[in-house]
Design a protein around this nucleic acid. Structure first.
Lengths: 153, 153
DNA sequence: CTTGACCTTCCCATCATGGGAAGCCCCATC
DNA sequence: GATGGGGCTTCCCATGATGGGAAGGTCAAG
């Protein structure tokens, strides 16, 4: 089907991992150094594409690059115990559940506040009142926030 | 109750915003330059503490610093229409809901896979089988992932 | 006057990703 | 054979919010 050896751009197109990221994965050791042509161009074979798709899928499931390194090692070890893989997956599930719960709490609070805010031309605003209230608990947990993405003006 | 003028460390303790972050908020323009002593030490009054607690609360609700800049401007404008505040809040709610849905999808997939994986000493592993399968859809959305936090060894 | 806690600025790291510049390479077309 | 365009190389920079740490000045208590 596919050519025996593809350039990085072709490999990127076929796996959904950008050329930039393929180079970065190599530079950080997640991938072994790619084969090079005489001119220095990287070349990828079927096995490399398979690995890249593996990485892509793992990223889509939210695994960190460190976790993927572990998963790749287990994948390559045909004698691995599945317990190791399951442990990594469950750790990731726990991470996701924790972050989801955190954001769910934020969302619910904001929904209550937004519901109480008439949102018209008048200045009275329960949302600002809440933000300005000095009686909020310290909330010592690690935050995973951000991304409203509005201009500061 | 409180002193009229506090050092950055005191202000940090009383507001839950670290001294590092207070300096950073000032450097990036979220906060106006603080008053300084002759020796160059920053000093904060009651109004500053109020603003810092406002920022802290907004961060705890997941607002980005850009969004907080907007919220602070509205907060200071006593004639603002509450509609503007509500719009920012609803944008943030939408962001949170989108990210929650994304992570919920990842978590559910992983839960199904983990359920199918016996997790013992045998090498058979549906989780690795899924990752290695070449038939996953491209998934073109922006990813909000990471954080398994394992060593790469 | 010493000591220790605190302040200042500056640089670096995170985590994964993209943008862009400068320069080389390859192929097709004229 | 020259030329042009697109792809490849490496290197630097930015993101977003946060912390760590170094080098050096300051303040207050002893």
């Amino acid at each position: 089907m596919s050519a025996a050896s593809l350039t990085i751009g072709e490999a990127a197109r076929r796996t959904g991992v950008s050329a930039k990221m393929i180079r970065w994965y190599e530079a950080t050791g997640l991938l072994p150094p790619a084969a090079r042509s005489e001119a220095g161009y990287r070349h990828y074979g079927e096995a490399d594409l398979h690995t890249l798709r593996f990485i892509r899928r793992a990223r889509d499931l939210g695994f960190s690059v460190n976790a993927i390194a572990d998963l790749l090692a287990l994948w390559r070890d045909r004698a691995r115990p599945s317990a190791g893989v399951k442990a990594i997956a469950q750790e990731q599930i726990a991470n996701l559940r924790r972050r989801i719960a955190e954001m769910e709490g934020m969302a619910r609070t904001l929904e209550h506040l937004a519901e109480a805010c008439c949102g018209d031309a008048r200045p009275d605003c329960p949302i600002l009142d809440d933000l300005a209230a000095g009686d909020h608990p310290p909330a010592p947990q690690r935050r995973a926030r951000g991304m409203t993405g509005r201009g500061a003006g």
